[in-house]
């Protein structure tokens, strides 16, 4: 197999949450794929459906209100949507790992970290010399003094160290894909960079694919090969990092990039997108960004936009917009 084989392929994924006010679609037909050894960024603001997409892939949507309403999630050819819960339990950790946002609450407070890394190894059917294996895993994620730290409890460690331990747990099963849901948001800026370097290092060593969910465009530029931009449960733009950053082809992406502060540009007021993301139960037929979009016309507000090639016609660069052609 070459590097360009898609390992994870999400097609037309639809996810619903059944609220007391009725079911709302939080993921509305999302399709993307990740190749082996590739890092895909999923960018979007809060409520854009990026975390729900991740939870759908792991099949750990909030019970009992969340459910996958349609589409397919193919991991190495197998459709995860069709699997039973017990089959899915065997997939989690072994084939797809996940790193959650807050390291401070991601570890069980009553066990030592060694105990928890060993548990992850046991889940993945490893036997014998588990303590040594746990220590070497902790060394792999750059936990200093691993042989001693293995006996420490989570509350005795810093956030950055805990997130490394969570990383060690998620690579214990040598998964083909790791989904990282804002893993650096709760960390100090200096630790963030170290952690991103660690993820890159793990990827180089194991060839695992990474799906990196974030709202930090700086991290995307630093870490990812390709990215998808999500808005209101849909993908509005997809492409390589170079294409999307140099030739953003959806007004929302343009606005996002304009909202990033630059050290070398002096501005009085930082750019902000007017208005709020739409509440998901009041989305109409047209483009969901239309109410906030400076280019929107009547067609945008009534007819769902087509998927068109990006402005510079880069390979695999697409935007869901009526106005891409008109953008300067």
């Amino acid at each position: 197999m070459t590097k360009n084989d898609p390992i994870l392929c999400v097609k037309n994924l639809r996810t619903e949450l059944a609220l007391s006010s009725g079911a709302i679609e939080v993921v509305r037909g999302v399709s993307f794929s990740v190749n082996k050894g590739e890092t895909l960024g999923i960018v979007g603001e809060s409520g854009s459906g990026k975390s729900m997409t991740a939870l759908s892939i792991m099949r750990v949507l909030p019970r009992p209100i969340g459910r996958i309403a349609g589409g397919s999630i193919r991991l190495d050819g197998r459709d995860l949507v069709q699997l039973t819960e017990s089959e899915m339990t065997r997939i989690r950790g072994r084939e797809i790992g996940m790193i959650l946002q807050d390291p401070h609450t991601s570890l069980n407070p009553v066990y030592t970290i060694g105990n928890q890394v060993i548990e992850a190894l046991q889940i993945n059917q490893q036997r014998g010399g588990l303590l040594e294996k746990a220590i070497s895993l902790l060394k792999k994620v750059n936990v200093a003094d691993a042989a001693r730290r293995v006996h420490a409890f989570p509350h005795q460690m810093s956030g950055g160290m805990k997130q490394r331990v969570v990383g060690a747990i998620s690579i214990a099963g040598a998964p083909k894909v790791i989904i990282a849901d804002e893993p650096t948001t709760a960390l100090d800026v200096t630790i963030q960079l170290q952690y991103l370097e660690l993820l890159e290092q793990i990827q180089q060593e194991t060839g695992t694919a990474i799906v990196f969910i974030t709202h930090d465009l700086g991290i995307v530029a630093r870490l990812c090969h390709r990215l998808v931009v999500m808005y209101a449960g849909r993908i509005v733009e997809e492409g390589t990092v170079d294409d999307v950053f140099n030739a953003p082809s959806h007004p929302y992406t343009v606005a996002l990039l304009n909202s990033v502060p630059h050290v070398d540009r002096k501005v009085d007021r930082l750019y902000a997108i007017k208005g709020n993301p739409p509440a998901l139960h009041e989305i109409g037929t047209g483009c969901s960004f239309a109410p906030r979009c400076p280019l929107a016309d009547t067609r945008c507000k009534t007819v769902s936009p087509p998927t068109v090639p990006g402005k510079n016609h880069g390979q695999g660069h697409f935007a869901a917009c009526w106005k891409t052609g008109e953008m300067a």
Partner: peptide, 26 residues
């Protein structure tokens, strides 16, 4: 609903394991 239970689930822990190792001791 706590994060460490969610983390255990995404790490492939079964329901029984979560109840006995993550909930009961706490």
């Amino acid at each position: 609903e706590r994060d460490f239970v969610a983390r255990a689930r995404v790490a492939g822990a079964s329901g029984g394991r979560i109840v006995l190792r993550y909930i009961l001791p706490n």
